[in-house]
């Protein structure tokens, strides 16, 4: 009788513990899931940002712009044919 009572009490405690645990981890899962969602979203945003920056860079390094900067700001120009000399080894 005593043993039976003891077992019942133990099982009840176990059950309660398991149930609390379940609820706790369910909550934990939800939290982690929300976090992954947030990170996924951040990834998408960063990707979009990266694509925008890539586009911005490609306009900044476009051949026509570099040519213009080299010519107008740095006073550079392509050498004429007669200005080119070749070093023979």
């Amino acid at each position: 009788m005593n043993i039976q009572n003891g077992m019942t009490v133990t099982f009840i405690f176990l059950l309660v513990a398991v149930l609390v645990n379940y609820v706790y981890f369910q909550n934990e899962t939800r939290k982690l899931f929300a976090e992954t969602q947030g990170v996924e979203k951040e990834k998408l945003e960063l990707n979009a940002e990266w694509a925008r920056l890539q586009i911005e860079m490609s306009t900044l390094v476009s051949n026509s712009r570099i040519e213009q900067v080299a010519r107008d700001q740095l006073n550079m120009k392509l050498p004429q044919d007669e200005q080119i000399m070749v070093i023979v080894r």
Binding site: M85, V86, R89
Partner: peptide
């Protein structure tokens, strides 16, 4: 590399 050089600066050899 150029293969028909008409104006050379200096021959290093």
């Amino acid at each position: 590399p150029a293969d028909q050089v008409t104006r050379t600066l200096v021959d290093l050899n």
